[in-house]
Design a protein around this nucleic acid. Structure first.
Lengths: 194, 194
DNA sequence: TCCGTTTATCAACAGCTGTTGACTTTCTAA
DNA sequence: TTAGAAAGTCAACAGCTGTTGATAAACGGA
């Protein structure tokens, strides 16, 4: 079980990848509890024991499957578009950009009943959303304003990807940007700049 | 097992009530899957078999425990406060008014991985939020606007009650009304009335 | 071809789940 | 006091869960 750095993919690497793919899909669809190791193994067409052999436990597998990065860099502050629009635009890119980039859905689906996933979501908030918001407006209440931004972003994700509320699913990316952007703008900059 | 209408509460009624109370608490804390019948029975200090005897299955128990009403009546339209403020105010009253009125938390916590709960949440949206929003602005895109309102309301509930994001938990009801109210107002009435 | 390593299979474990049926206790009305 | 109903207890079922160890097959280099 060598980590096999930068060589041609060995058989075990391919199996590992297929397990991870199956896990990502099932965790995103059914959450941590709803996706069993046997289900994951079946989708990857291998024996359940292999899942444990390659990842040591279901928890570790979930941790690997839920890895993702918001990619909200500091460069965001240099753009000329309103910050509210820039944020929601970046989020949509991350969530709907490349297929398989469903890390946020995996986390969100499990966060309601899994403390590890919930902590990870809070982490994303603290390390990715808060700094961007803090770069604008008064730094004193950056937490409060970032919390409001998070509530709108997570609510949108919940309605669009988890609950699949029809009118929210039907929204185009442009409509979302045009509608949610100003709301975020207000949360970030405060009503006085509105 | 008579339904015993309007008499003094029989022993069975009291047991039934205590089961329902325990179920509401545990479903709200751990979701549908996370709360087992044995857990619920233990909290109610009775035998697990009684849970099935009084409610016929776990699903039926959950359905009874998750019953709740938003109480968003048509009279909302007669108030003189801005509709956005009126909506968020009413929501806070329902969610945080009387202890034990945690129906929305129960539903939301389970909706991520339980299709029945998800359907109920969509139901609340369609039957409680949409009509109120539809009474304002152009009725043509009432669905879209109601969807945006729902995304902000559910996001707030998710951050405050499920994830317990510290800065969102710290918000006072007045702060929430002052910040979220205008955002909802914009979703309901559209930018042109802003 | 042979050998050692890697990869995969299988059966089983202990513990949990919702649910059931037989049984016993407690209460209530005649 | 006694008969009958209501309420509660107990053990067990079948099926699922994550995880493990022994064993077998496939592979790759000498």
């Amino acid at each position: 079980m060598s980590t096999n750095p930068s060589k041609k993919p060995s058989k075990s690497d391919r199996t590992k990848t297929s397990i991870l793919e199956a896990a990502r899909g099932l965790f995103a669809e059914h959450g941590y509890d709803g996706a069993s190791i046997r289900d994951i193994a079946a989708r990857a067409s291998i024996d359940p024991a292999m899942v444990i052999r390659y990842f040591n436990s279901k928890d570790e597998l979930f941790a690997r499957a839920a890895l993702f990065d918001l990619q909200l860099p500091a460069t965001l502050v240099t753009e000329h578009a309103p910050i509210g629009e820039a944020i929601i635009k970046r989020f949509l890119e991350t969530w709907e950009g490349s297929p398989g980039a469903n890390g946020m859905v995996i986390l969100l689906r499990s966060a309601a009943s899994n403390e590890f996933a919930a902590e990870k979501v809070r982490d994303v908030f603290a390390n990715q959303i808060r700094p961007v918001v803090a770069a604008f407006g008064s730094p004193a209440d950056a937490g409060r304003r970032a919390g409001l931004v998070a509530s709108q972003l997570l609510g949108l994700a919940t309605c669009r990807y988890l609950l699949r509320l029809p009118p929210v699913v039907a929204l185009s990316q442009e409509e979302i940007i045009a509608n949610v952007g100003p709301a975020l703008q207000r949360y970030v900059m405060g009503p006085e700049v509105q």
